[in-house]
Amino acid sequence: MTTHLALLRGINVSGHNMIKMDALKKMLENMGFQNVETYIQSGNVFVDSEEENAASVGFKIKQEIFREFGHDVPVVTIGKEDLELCFKNNPYLKEKECDTKKLYVTFISKELSPLALNDLKISNFKPDEAAIDSSRIYIKYAIGAGKTKLDQKYIEKKLNVVATMRNWNTVTKLLEMYNERL
Rank of each mutant, 00 (worst) to 15 (best):
K60H: 13
V36L: 07
E95T: 13
L175H: 04
K173P: 02
I108Y: 01
A23Q: 15
I108A: 02
E64A: 12
T3I: 09
K110C: 08
G70E: 11
L24T: 03
L83G: 01
T148Q: 04
E129Q: 11
L83V: 09
K153L: 10
E129C: 04
F59W: 14
E50V: 15
E37V: 12
L5E: 00
N169P: 08
V73E: 08
A54D: 09
G144W: 04
I19K: 02
T148W: 00
L120K: 00
E68Q: 15
L174V: 10
E64H: 10
K147I: 12
T170E: 04
I137K: 00
D133H: 06
V162A: 06
D99E: 14
E111T: 12
K140W: 00
K20D: 08
V13P: 03
L5S: 01
T38L: 04
L103I: 13
E180N: 15
H16V: 10
M1Q: 07
V171A: 07
R166M: 10
E156L: 03
L7W: 01
S135Y: 01
T148A: 04
G70M: 13
K26F: 08
D22F: 12
K25R: 15
L117T: 06
D133K: 07
V13T: 10
P74W: 02
E68M: 14
I122K: 03
N118T: 07
D48L: 09
M21W: 06
S123F: 08
L28H: 02
Q63L: 15
D128A: 02
K94Y: 11
A55Q: 14
I122H: 00
N160Q: 12
